[in-house]
Nucleic acid binder design. Structure first.
Length: 424
RNA sequence: GGAGGUUUGGCAGAGUGGUCGAAUGCGGCGGUCUUGAAAACCGUUGUACCGAAAGGUACCGGGGGUUCGAAUCCCUCAGCCUCCGCCA
């Protein structure tokens, strides 16, 4: 959520920035917000004046009672009766406009950073660089969904039987390889200074709201209605919410967190689209990295996170490319996002395996995550997060790219984790 | 799941219908003293919104109610603790 003061101080700049994200009705929304804001302030003044009068009267009545002046006190009570009605009305008016202001405000996306390229579709994203080499596969190379069957690594059918499609069942060396990747990613993150957490996999309404999953993306989450809890779509939600309603001493910044969790996504409306094999699942594993940063250092931190992810891909020897998303392709809450894609050689496709974003104060504003600066002023911190990394598509690319006529070669860095160097 | 207790400022802890945004202690910050530090002493020390300012308003776990007036009384929800039950 944008800060109301930013909009109040420079509405034109806000509208101009939102154009980069192709928000068509930005001008209308901003105008609406400014109008609500003005109304809200005037209504607060009215309400506060009435409350002030009521407080004064109550005090006077108390004094009069104390002095034994009952009749005088009772006379004053008469005024408070009508005052009560006005206060009730004033409070309702204020609450209603406050609610409307908030509802409009949460619908406004974050402002993109000035380096974000203008563009509406993924075609207009900006490729930063590439790394690794695309392997030349042998004649009988297969896509991963055939490989996992051939070597009995993942059983999609039984997963579907137990739960439904998109819930894979990992088996034997497939399970071991998955666990190896999780441990490998976590070790890289903790070596880079991230503190490891194992958070709850289910969150309440307040947490889902604070990181922006609610109210807009409710359909993306599995909802446990009996307890009004949500299965996490990403570890970002519980990890970032550790710092909800927190004021940090400036000296504690930056904060670096990591955690492995399964992620649950309903993917409503995505049925049939790239859903073969591991490409798109309802449950998948991911290691997430999160940073809480001083505003002055958040973009350096973003670069650092990009480098972190890049080095992991390099050590796995996967061909990758890094893309800076254009305004139209960026998420609602992000000010700048880098996507990582790896090349899945048998599918002959680039697959998104990580997304690293700086949210600046957008998320912190909802979280009420602040730090106390040198002048003892509380300021919103910057939050960043990224996948490091999402497992399924890494697994898909590894299996496809490393297949040989004799079996699938396990990358060197993973062998200590798997205990085997070849799947045959 | 049942019974009881509890939830107050960074922490500890008082307050049980009016002058309480809230005593006191610790911690923090500033100062005096000191070559420096400690100790001692003095001062200061919550958050948010409105306002040019003066000042105003709200917040004592969340929500609602009683009352002219609620941290204090009532209802309700949640967290924590203890005992019982169940259980990995």
């Amino acid at each position: 959520m944008l800060e109301i003061t930013t909009i109040r101080q420079n509405p034109e700049a806000v509208i101009a920035r939102l154009k980069v994200k192709y928000v068509e009705n930005a001008a209308e929304m901003v105008a609406q917000i400014l109008q609500y804001d003005a109304q809200r302030r005037s209504l607060q003044q009215q309400r506060d004046d009435l409350l002030n009068r009521s407080n004064t009267l109550a005090q006077e009545i108390g004094q009069l009672y104390k002095q034994g002046k009952r009749p005088e006190a009772d006379a004053l009570k008469a005024e408070t009766l009508s005052l009560k009605e006005s206060i009730k009305q004033a409070e309702a008016d204020f609450a209603s406009i406050d609610e409307q202001l908030n509802q409009t405000l949460v619908q406004l996306p974050n402002l993109p950073h000035e380096l974000v390229p203008e563009g509406a579709t993924p075609e207009e994203n900006f490729e930063i660089r590439r790394g690794g080499t695309i392997p030349a596969l042998h004649d009988k190379a297969q896509p991963h969904w055939d490989l996992v069957q051939k070597y009995r690594l993942i059983d999609f059918e039984t997963g579907a039987k137990i739960t439904g499609s998109g819930f894979p069942l990992f088996v034997g060396r497939g399970a071991k390889l998955q666990r190896a990747l999780i441990n490998f990613f976590l070790d890289r993150a903790t070596e880079a200074g991230y503190t490891e957490y194992i958070p709850p996999h289910v969150v309440n309404h307040a947490s889902a709201y604070a990181t922006g999953q609610l109210p807009d993306k409710e359909a993306q989450m599995y909802h446990v209605t009996l307890d009004d809890l949500y299965l996490i779509p990403t570890a970002e939600v519980p990890l970032t919410n550790i710092y909800r309603d927190v004021i940090l001493p400036e000296s504690e910044l930056p904060i670096r967190l990591t955690g492995y969790t399964p992620c649950f996504r309903r993917e409503a409306g995505a049925a049939g689209k790239d859903t073969r094999g591991l490409n798109r699942l309802h449950q998948f594993d991911k290691v997430e990295i999160v940073q809480v940063q001083h505003p002055e250092h958040s973009y350096a931190a973003l670069d650092e996170m990009v480098l972190h992810v890049e080095q992991i891909l390099q050590s796995l020897q996967l061909p990758y490319r890094i893309i800076r998303l254009c305004g139209g392709d960026m998420s609602f809450a992000s000010a700048m996002t880098y996507d990582f894609e790896v090349y899945s050689a048998a599918q002959q496709k680039w697959l998104e395996v990580s997304s690293v974003s700086n949210f600046e104060t957008f998320q912190a504003n909802r979280l009420q995550l602040r730090y106390r600066d040198a002048n003892k002023k509380n300021r919103l911190a910057h939050t960043l997060n990224g996948s490091a990394l999402a497992l399924p598509r890494i697994m898909a690319a590894l299996l496809e790219n490393n297949q040989t006529p004799d079996g699938i070669v396990v990358p060197d860095v993973l062998c200590p984790y798997t205990g085997f160097s070849m799947i045959d």
